[in-house]
Design a protein around this nucleic acid. Structure first.
Length: 828
RNA sequence: GCCGGAGUGGCGGAAUCUGGUAGUCGCAGCGGACUUAAAAUCCGCUGGGGCGAAAGCCCCGUGCCGGUUCGAGUCCGGCCUCCGGCACCA
């Protein structure tokens, strides 16, 4: 059999789809809208088949939904700012813009070659001024709402990339991107107050029913809300106090010492001028070094140093010692804790090391405490707690919190692990922060009418290493007049984190050329939330959390009517080779052309979809790709060898006149239609859908090769009916070959303007099934009987079976279980 | 440590939601047809063990242990292993 001419077919249809604007979306058709969004890529260069998975899944789904009758919006764009582009440009000694544009052109060409089709009239590119102008607008909106603020902060500094990193970009004390250990710097930085939306971001996770469980969980853990109380502990003889955050005010009678973070401001006051100053400074320096190196992250030693002051437990009135120890973090709560060694394992270990008193204040109801071997963190009732004895911790929490608030000695407080979002970057390739520093007026926003603040293209973009942005070198960029007073002023020279760019791009697709606003409100309200978002799980926290935050912010401003951006999320698994994630740096990539040249894009697509459930990681196998190519050739072969027969069979078969063999294929066709529609539409199970289509194709082969006496006058109609269903169901996955066959079967319009085939439930099941006959739950016989035989009759058939009669040997069954269309189980 | 996910043939994986024939489909392998030959293609076999000349029959088998049930890969309880996320968060 000849191989089908994939190269010619594929390039011809790719051209045609592009010309005809196959995926061009009519935004006014909102009655049956479907917004199918794939995460837009960094234009970082060549794509390999691992990248391809995201786009192949998305393209197949978009085509499928189109054939289901939806008006599909499937746009694509480029997350074009950012470090990778900039670093690559520096290496190659060309401008990042040039490098980026080259990559965009190349990647667009790749999409084209894969038959991945988008509505390119809606393309957005985040590094172009017509886009980042609105990213700057977004910044100004946040500033106006008091949610963008500037603060001197101890920040994570990557000495190699020479920039500040967000907490999220620091992994194990090192730069997420280059692995260099981070340093600490104190700089004035811009933050977005994402914590103002922490509760909403957390609570609304509950509404995201169609998000993967693990993503929801990861976000929940990341935000990590905890409710507690802040209260003051007076320092004896100092006239000052230290504020502590605790989630367990009910254990306050057991607070036998305080621990401050080494960076706590009170530590400096206590150390300065102390007799032990050299010793203490030495300890602080050591703790700081350990912290920055990551050594102290999970250090179990519980080392600490006594400070020369005592605090007063406000409830017992006792003087309690004060320590500093690195296990207390400055970034969380107040940087100081009341230690309750009896009921917190860390405090317990610390107390054990330094011989501090451990006082039980919660006793378990069953008396089975873990004390004195370990802290007891469970439930119980209060003891050793004065008037509060006998209360449950929950009740004591409420009473104490209320009392502290009434007397002004403390207040209820919710803390989050989530921190505000540091968005300043001291790099060139990003959207300039649209702010101006005026000696007279202070920080002044650039007026909206003056946007965009253009990124100058004539500056040295390599990092300077002094903590300042490359933009600081450009006087033309830097020097401006103050919009408020007209005096000489300077621009902010930092650029924004690229996650800001990608936090709102899905809105811009609705009006990508609109020069008057960031996004058209009415269209966004009609088309969003996104019906299906598809991307990698590596964005489970950062991008998805930021996009949710910005959506909630815009909703709070009345800019949009919805407050979650993505109704459904699908995270596809990684593509691995030799057990490792496919990536250029690991040298295990499969360049798409090595598949497409010899076997075509349809084969690559089919394999990507067939090789496993799309949410799971897969191991690439070159041999299995061949199998997919064979399948497509078989389908082509059916057409080639039977084209006249197919052409003559376009009339619908009449069931009554079919032979047994024909009825079997007819039913198989209806069964397959039902199965594929359910698999793809509800669950993205392309892998099982494809195996169903392979079965159908095998069944067609069986009928066309059946002996003449097994077929009747309607054979060609049955075959046509089956083949037509096969081609239409397969079209979203392998669009080129199906489009070609569709046209050869006599259709003038694109298959993607056709509908998916329909099934009749009457025919989705076989006429007969194998009745399984069990004796005591072991299969002892089978018999082929008609579907829907009534249970009594099934029982009779089973009991009459000779093999069964032999086994029963005249004994009377105790019980007979009959499951219609499945089995009979005879229990003796 | 906490949270999530997964363990099924030589391999990728079906069946798991809703308990009812474990292994769809594909890969690899073996045998056969075609061929001077090979490739390609087509047909057949392919979880393990046992009995039988054969037709066929029997036993075991979904990470481990237990439970529920006529019946468990599927449900429940307790473990083990692997992957991912978070991790001194008071």
């Amino acid at each position: 059999m000849a191989r089908y001419p994939h190269a010619e077919i594929e390039s011809r249809w790719q051209e045609r789809w592009a010309q005809d604007g196959l995926m061009r979306c009519d935004l006014s058709a909102t009655a049956r809208k479907y917004y199918c969004l794939m995460m837009f890529p960094y234009p970082s260069g060549e794509l390999h088949v691992g990248h391809g998975r995201n786009y192949v899944i998305g393209d197949s789904l978009a085509r499928f939904k189109k054939m289901e009758g939806y008006e599909v919006l499937a746009p694509m764009g480029w997350d074009a700012f950012g470090l990778p582009a900039e670093n690559a440009a520096i290496q190659r000694d060309i401008h990042p813009a040039q490098w980026t544009r080259g990559n965009i052109a190349r990647m667009k060409q790749q999409f084209h070659r894969w038959g991945v089709v988008y509505d390119w009239t809606r393309e957005v590119t985040s590094c172009e001024p017509d886009y980042y102008r609105w990213t700057q607008w977004l910044f100004l909106q946040l500033y106006d709402a008091g949610l963008a603020y500037r603060q001197a902060a101890s920040v994570n500094w990557c000495p190699k990339d020479r920039t500040v990193l967000a907490n999220e970009q620091v992994v194990d004390g090192a730069c997420e991107r280059c692995g260099t250990p981070i340093e600490e710097r104190h700089l004035e930085q811009w933050f977005f107050r994402i914590t103002a939306f922490a509760d909403q971001l957390l609570d609304d996770l509950g509404t995201l029913a169609d998000w993967p469980e693990r993503v929801v969980t990861m976000q929940r853990n990341w935000i990590d809300r905890s409710e507690g109380v802040e209260l003051d502990f007076a320092l004896q003889g100092a006239g000052r106090s230290v504020r502590c955050f605790t989630t367990r005010p009910d254990t306050i009678f057991g607070a036998t010492f305080l621990v401050l973070s080494p960076e706590h401001p009170e530590v400096e006051r206590l150390v300065a001028g102390s007799e032990r100053e050299p010793e203490l400074r030495d300890a602080i320096a050591r703790f700081t070094a350990d912290r920055l190196s990551g050594r102290s992250r999970t250090d179990p030693s519980r080392e600490g140093v006594r400070l020369d002051v005592d605090a007063v437990n406000p409830f017992t009135g006792e003087a309690i010692p004060v320590f500093m120890a690195p296990y207390v973090l400055m970034e969380y709560g107040t940087g100081a804790i009341m230690a309750v060694p009896a009921h917190d394992q860390r405090d317990f270990e610390f107390a054990t090391r330094y011989g501090l008193p451990v006082r039980e204040v919660i006793r378990p109801a069953d008396g089975k405490t873990t004390l004195p071997d370990a802290a007891y963190a469970g439930d119980g009732v209060l003891v050793n707690s004065g008037d509060y004895d006998g209360l449950t911790p929950r009740d004591a929490f409420d009473r104490l919190a209320t009392l502290l608030e009434r007397e002004g000695r403390g207040k209820r407080r919710v803390n989050y692990r989530l921190r505000d979002w540091l968005i300043s970057r001291q790099r060139y390739w990003g959207a300039p922060i649209p702010m101006i520093h005026c000696p007279a007026c202070g920080v002044v926003p650039v007026p909206e009418s003056a946007l965009p603040v253009l990124l100058p293209d004539d500056v040295e973009f390599r990092p300077r290493g002094d903590g300042k942005s490359p933009l600081a070198a450009s006087d033309a960029f830097r020097n401006v007049t103050c919009p408020a007073c007209g005096g000489a002023a300077t621009r902010d020279t930092d650029t924004m984190d690229t996650f800001v760019d990608s936090s709102w791009y899905f809105l811009r697709y609705l009006g990508p050329q609109d020069a008057t606003r960031a996004f058209p409100k009415e269209l966004c309200n009609a088309w969003l939330p996104v019906d299906q978002y598809i991307g990698g799980v590596e964005h489970a926290i950062l991008h998805l959390l930021y996009a949710r935050f910005i959506t909630k912010f815009l909703h709070s401003r009345g800019e949009i009517s919805f407050d979650e951006p993505f109704a459904r999320l699908f995270t596809q698994g990684m593509v691995c080779k030799n057990g490792l994630k496919m990536s250029k740096s690991k040298g295990n990539v499969v360049p798409p052309d090595t598949i497409i040249e010899p076997m075509g894009a349809d084969t690559m697509r089919l394999y990507i979809l067939f090789c496993g459930p799309p949410e799971r990681d897969i191991e690439w196998s070159d041999e299995s790709v061949d199998g997919c190519y064979r399948f497509l050739n078989r389908i082509w072969g059916i057409y080639e060898t039977h084209d006249t027969m197919l052409a003559s069979g376009a009339q619908a078969p009449e069931y009554a006149g079919l032979t047994d063999a024909e009825r079997e294929l007819f039913r198989k066709t209806h069964h397959t239609i039902a199965r594929v529609l359910a698999d793809v539409s509800d669950h993205f199970r392309f892998n099982t859908a494809i195996s169903g289509l392979m079965e159908l194709s095998n069944a067609i082969g069986t009928l066309v090769n059946a002996p003449a006496d097994a077929t009747g006058p309607q054979r060609d109609r049955v075959v046509y009916h089956a083949f037509d269903a096969l081609v239409r169901l397969l079209a979203p996955m392998t669009p080129h070959i199906c489009e070609e066959l569709w046209h050869r079967m006599g259709h003038a319009e694109s298959i993607f303007t056709a509908t998916l085939p329909e099934f009749d439930p009457e025919y989705t099941r076989a006429e007969v099934f194998d009745l399984v006959i069990q004796v005591n739950s072991k299969i002892r016989a089978r018999e082929s009987i008609p579907t829907d035989t009534d249970p009594e009759h099934m029982k009779a058939i089973a009991l009459a079976n000779p093999r069964i009669q032999e086994l029963l040997a005249g004994a009377t069954p105790r019980r007979v279980v009959v499951i219609q269309n499945r089995l009979v189980n005879i229990v003796t």
